Amino acid sequence: MSEAATHADAAETFQAVRPALIGLGYRMTGSWATAEDIAQDVYLRWQAADRATIALPRAWLMKAAGRLALDHLKSARVRREDYVGPWLPEPALDSEDPPQEAAWARTETLSLAFMLTLERLSPPERAIFILHDLFDTPFDELAGLLDRTDAACRQIAVRARAKLEGHRPPHPVPPAESDRLTRAFFAATQTGDEAGLRRLLTSDVVLHTDGGGIRPAALNLIHGGDKAARMFASLARKRAGAERSLIHTGLINGEPGYVTREPDGLPQATVLTITEGQISAVYIIRNPAKLGAIASQLGLNL
């Protein structure tokens, strides 16, 4: 086989696995940009590897991505200790070709609530849970990745599942109801309709706002419908007359949400968890460093 044909075959093998590599990298790091960088780094290593000796290409590629993601996660943990305010993963719009392997994964393991739940895990726990439980990597392969025994990897997986116990994936919301609640919430926050917001929000709603110290945002989680409604009403009064436009509505990380252009000219992503006809969680991502994927998908300039 010619060198060109060999490279073409290697590229074809890699492209078939690339969506899984990005899905793995995102769940590990919470960053689409980092996940894409990991996939590109894996590709370069794959091209340079002695592929004739690799019996299971997909397993090799997934383990390489897992190792890179694990290295990044260990350093990211240190950076997050100094993060200003609540940390949220980078959001991304749902698309026709999502970076994961199955439709169930889009809503169950890409929701922001689940991604935050993963933060409870240590880097090894997170790597083993994601690679084994979500991407079907056998324990004997993980043992080599983490320099642990097969039995130790199984024990780590048990601890990881125990820490994640209690997480409930978001229930699918009919598109018509999702759109109605999303638009009603945006309208109420736009006008400062405090009474309307109280009707839309559950009494125990939790509001997460991530500005990363770059844009104004609440420094702590806000609990309760009354507090959240008052905050949104106050914000509406403060920006009275300032231009704020709705750019996009639809699913973001598998849940209802929308993207706005705020008075400062930058985008903002808002994601809603809907439970029994009301909004039980609100995630607002304002940090420009986390809005690159959405800006690219919508053709916006940051």
Rank of each mutant, 00 (worst) to 15 (best):
V259P: 02
D264T: 02
R244H: 08
L266Y: 09
A240K: 12
I247R: 15
S280H: 10
G241I: 12
E276M: 00
T273P: 14
T275L: 15
I247C: 14
V282P: 06
A269I: 04
K238A: 14
T273S: 15
R244T: 09
L272K: 13
K238Q: 15
I252K: 01
L272N: 13
P267Q: 07
P256H: 05
D264V: 02
V282Y: 06
T270N: 09
R244S: 08
H248N: 08
T270P: 07
A240S: 07
G241L: 11
Y283G: 10
G254S: 10
Q278D: 04
E255L: 08
I279R: 06
V259N: 01
T249Q: 06
I284N: 12
G241Q: 14
E276S: 03
T275H: 15
A269D: 03
Y283A: 11
R239C: 05
G257W: 11
A242C: 09
G257D: 15
L272E: 13
L246K: 07
E255P: 01
T275F: 14
D264L: 01
D264H: 01
A281R: 10
P263W: 09
T273F: 13
R261Q: 12
T260M: 00
G277M: 03
R239T: 12
I247Y: 14
T275R: 15
A269P: 04
R239A: 13
A269L: 03
R239V: 13
L246Y: 03
G257I: 09
E262T: 13
I279L: 09
T249E: 12
L266M: 10
T273Q: 15
Q268D: 09
T275P: 08
Y258D: 03
G265P: 03
L251V: 02
G254H: 09
V259D: 00
T270Y: 09
R261I: 05
E276Y: 01
L272P: 11
G277K: 05
A242W: 11
I279E: 13
V271I: 10
T275G: 13
V282Q: 08
A281G: 05
G277Y: 02
L266H: 09
G265I: 00
P263M: 07
S245Q: 00
G257K: 05
P263S: 07
E262D: 11
E255G: 02
V271G: 01
V271S: 01
G254P: 12
G265L: 02
P267V: 02
G250I: 15
D264C: 02
Q278S: 03
E262K: 00
E276H: 04
A281C: 05
G257F: 08
I279S: 07
I252M: 07
H248T: 14
R239P: 06
E276L: 01
T270E: 03
V282W: 11
Q278K: 01
P263C: 07
I252Q: 05
Y258E: 04
K238L: 13
A240M: 09
Q268T: 13
A269S: 09
R244K: 10
T260R: 00
P256V: 12
G250D: 14
I285K: 11
R286L: 03
Y283D: 11
Q268P: 05
E255M: 12
A242I: 11
S245M: 00
L246E: 02
V282F: 09
T249S: 11
E262M: 06
I274V: 12
L266V: 10
A242D: 14
L246Q: 03
T260K: 00
S280P: 03
I285G: 05
Q268I: 08
I252T: 14
S245P: 00
V259Y: 00
L251F: 09
